[in-house]
Design a protein around this nucleic acid. Structure first.
Lengths: 270, 270
DNA sequence: CGTCTAGTTGAATCGCATCAACAAGCGTGG
DNA sequence: CCACGCTTGTTGATGCGATTCAACTAGACG
């Protein structure tokens, strides 16, 4: 259970500023880099944020996209009554701010959940570069499109899935993302509070807590505070809903045994 | 209550095909058209769909965006268990298919809710044009960004709002969109079923039906089948939740009068 | 005429939110 | 050091709101 004090950043020096050239950014975005542009001398500024700081705030002028080089972030939206809704948990390689391109001001906020190193991609620069460097423009199209598709599947989850299924899917998606970044897919630390998770999933923090406890009791995961260990990814994937409390009560009325084995993979039960 | 047999299309002939030039498409997308391109002779094909037909289907090769010239559409996503989730109700001026740019196949389906005239915007053409015609590329960025922002507010509604508030917001947004297209903002026909609305809002069709009835009884709207008349948009805007049934029951126990006036604007009640 | 789909309405149930009490972790300051 | 407040997380009891199941009506269509 590593202390967070040793950051994983590669090209990190103790200064607050650092610059990346176009080739580095291109690699980050998985865009092929044509020879003709190899000597383009555009530089992109890095910015450093401490945990809790805002990368951008509601209403702030929009002039730049943000590429996450290291660290963890949450983005939030405020509804008409001022309550906040968590939209995403960006991490290394993700791009923020695309939802604000269409207007002059940011419609959401982004808050660092840990110390972060962020690369600024001024929108004007990106737009200009897209001329001569069409693969970049296409890459941005691709990024936004993927983001749209992700939001759509989130919507469908919000629409229909049970609390258990939502939490399970959330854990699996984190697991997947950590894996793609080269970390363990089965054990990791949550960077956000139960409240944040609840907001993200459309649940209350109590429900999230209870659900994690339930999955823990079933042995599908092991939870202790923010440390998560996924024991049975397949079961999580197939999970629709846990047996209802009433059902549980009835069953445990019958079998007074204290160790009741694997229920929870509900396809059979539902 | 007009028959639908008289379409509103302007440049419609009885043929199934028709072509638009770049200037027309640009105007549709509200993109300024530079002189240099005035004589660009790109043509965009129209396609005609009858109500119930699919504009594109799940898994179909992606090679084109779709610009709605007339008619009403729903787009749907299938979750892992095959149940469908309504994603949007595009109408005149909206662009479909942007969620599939990032991969070779459509991840969703689009179904015509009425007869439709659709302009095909081949993605390759758009991408190529974006070179020389940078405002077009920016416009696409803008469209996708706006779509992202819209999805985000939908997510936040799904997360927190009551059934009444969701239905109210839905009606208001339709009203707004009709208004922007030059139709009445207060009276219109729904083109989709209660089931579609429910799926779109994350509710069941019964709940939608009940909610519409309730709003009707309160006089905020008038409903009769698919015909909607908005009587008090302001009240709809401010609506958080209706008084609970239990509360209602209690109140009507006390006042046995049959005409109980305007409750429903719940800010005071919540 | 019967059949099918769309919509309405009622009654019962369930899942999650709400309210509340409590434990654990953590920094602060006496 | 412990006392203190503060945030985060856990767990229990209760109730509301939306779902579910079901019966019924109204149109559309052949």
């Amino acid at each position: 259970m590593q202390k967070e004090s040793a950051p994983i950043c590669t090209n990190w020096t103790s200064q607050n500023k650092l610059w990346s050239n176009l080739a580095e950014v291109a690699e980050f975005l998985h865009v092929p880099m044509p020879q003709a542009l190899q000597r383009e001398n555009v530089l992109f500024q890095h910015m450093h944020f401490k945990a809790g700081q805002r990368i951008h705030t509601l209403g702030q002028n929009f002039d730049s996209l943000y590429l996450v080089n290291s660290g963890f972030i949450k983005t939030i939206l405020f509804d008409e009554f001022g309550t906040e809704q968590v939209l995403s948990f960006p991490m290394k390689g993700d791009v923020l701010g695309m939802d604000s391109i269409h207007c002059a001001h940011h419609s959401s906020e982004a808050i660092a959940l840990s110390d972060c190193d962020i690369i600024l991609l001024p929108y004007k620069t990106i737009a200009t570069l897209s001329h001569s460097y069409d693969q970049l423009g296409q890459a941005i199209f691709g990024l936004m499109s993927k983001e749209l598709a992700r939001q759509q599947t989130r919507l469908s989850i919000h629409g229909s899935a049970s609390a258990e299924a939502r939490v399970a899917k959330f854990l699996l998606s984190l697991s997947e993302r950590f894996f793609l970044l080269g970390y363990s897919k089965s054990t990791f630390n949550l960077r956000m509070t139960r409240n944040d998770i609840g907001s993200y999933l459309g649940l209350t923090l109590e429900t999230v807590s209870r659900t994690l406890s339930a999955l823990n009791e079933l042995g599908l995961i092991s939870v202790s505070q923010r440390h998560i260990c996924i024991n049975d990814a397949e079961a999580l994937r197939n999970l629709r809903k846990l047996p209802s409390n009433k059902l549980k009560a009835k069953i445990s009325e019958c079998f007074q045994s204290s160790t009741i084995s694997a229920w929870g993979m509900a396809p059979a039960l539902n």
